[in-house]
Design a protein around this nucleic acid. Structure first.
Lengths: 211, 211
DNA sequence: ATCATTAAGTGGTCTGACCACGTAAATCCA
DNA sequence: TGGATTTACGTGGTCAGACCACTTAATGAT
């Protein structure tokens, strides 16, 4: 009787779960789409009447699920969440086998190659000036951009999720000179698939070799 | 300059992600199984040299993933990975629109292209006799085989899950002539990536168009 | 105009303080 | 003694406040 009285919406005893639900509502009601910015953590804290730590627990969970992405100093944004179960598999999977690590890396690289392939199929030209201006190039950010250039958001999303998990595995980071990334962009813009992919494999990923 | 090694400073990896990784290590090293109890939050805070809030962010994320289970007053326990109630959370979050269905199909096809691409990169030769002997070819079984031919377990598993999920959506089934599948195999064995992928897109998946 | 500086906003993290709950030890009482 | 009760402690749950690091926009100086 009157069991619905407890909280506003539903069951959830834990605040962070409640917040997860409320965030979903916010997204729905405002018809928010991937890329849109969510209210800041402090705003949510106020709106949802919860502690910031609880809000963060919810956001972090959603982030690991690949539903949102956060950029320090900028905010929290909705990402493409249509892959759902992907994460489930990956998680249960990754925490078991050893070979899984290798597969994660390999799969990510495959996605990146497909990305390159896709871009060239679209005859996509990429603006290099932004990256030329940089001192050094972060591998993750670079390919995140590349993924974004394709009109296949699913590809980008899968890549991001896998990348995210890979990150949590504490694998050795790769170091690639800025010039190599720029060369890759150049190859892509020129439009020679074979050269671009070969360059990716041999220069960008040459030093990936972990046990 | 002056970018000392204060705490965990520079590398953009977030503490909570690192904690996720460390927890995984703990589980691995101690050969922990579902049902086993993890160190308490405060212990982890001490062991991992991180704030309790960060530890909790990691734990909450893992909890939402269904990897761990927490019981107030008792502790945190490794949960059976098979308990994926995660799907409900995500589906509630996402499966609202019809477009999601389309995305599932797109994703699967993308994975299949990646598969083909991978096989050819491995210069994998596929035995066609088994399929030639058949009267008709089941699309699912065919690509299940292809996935199995790659040595990337993760890729295969992702595809399998998505494929299963797609089945549950009762989408119209595609009908492709046996000869087309055989032709694809032939293209793969020959080793021309462009032709094989083009053939896949235009012949194997040409008739995929649902609303 | 251009560049450097400042300020404000945002996520990232840590700490300390409580509360709610469960358990086991200590205690009490018949 | 033996069972029931109380107590103390450990654990997760939550909150508030304080900084830090980074981004962006407003501001100021040249």
């Amino acid at each position: 009787m009157a069991s619905e009285k407890n909280k506003q919406s539903d069951n959830q005893s834990k605040v962070y779960l409640e917040v997860v639900g409320r965030i979903k509502e916010i997204i729905d009601e405002n018809q928010m789409a991937p890329g849109d910015k969510l209210p800041s953590e402090r705003e949510l804290t106020d709106i949802l009447d919860a502690g910031r730590s609880s809000v963060r627990e919810a956001l972090r969970a959603l982030e690991l699920l690949g539903l949102i992405e956060t950029r320090r100093g900028e905010g929290t944004f909705i990402s493409d969440f249509r892959n759902h179960r992907l994460v489930e598999i990956l998680s249960g999977f990754i925490l078991q086998n050893e070979k899984a690590k290798k597969d994660v890396v390999k799969t990510r690289q495959l996605l990146e190659e497909i990305c390159i392939y896709t871009l060239m199929n679209q005859s996509k030209k990429i603006d290099t000036s932004f990256w030329e201006a940089k001192e050094s190039i972060d591998d993750g950010k670079f390919f995140a951009m590349l993924m974004g250039e394709t009109d296949n958001y699913l590809l980008a999303k899968i890549w991001r999720i896998i990348s995210n998990f890979e990150h949590s595995l504490n694998l050795p980071k790769i170091e690639v000179a800025k010039e190599h990334y720029l060369q890759l962009l150049k190859d892509i813009n020129i439009g020679n698939v074979k050269i671009a992919l070969k360059f990716y494999e041999e220069e960008i990923r040459k030093n990936v070799d972990f046990t």
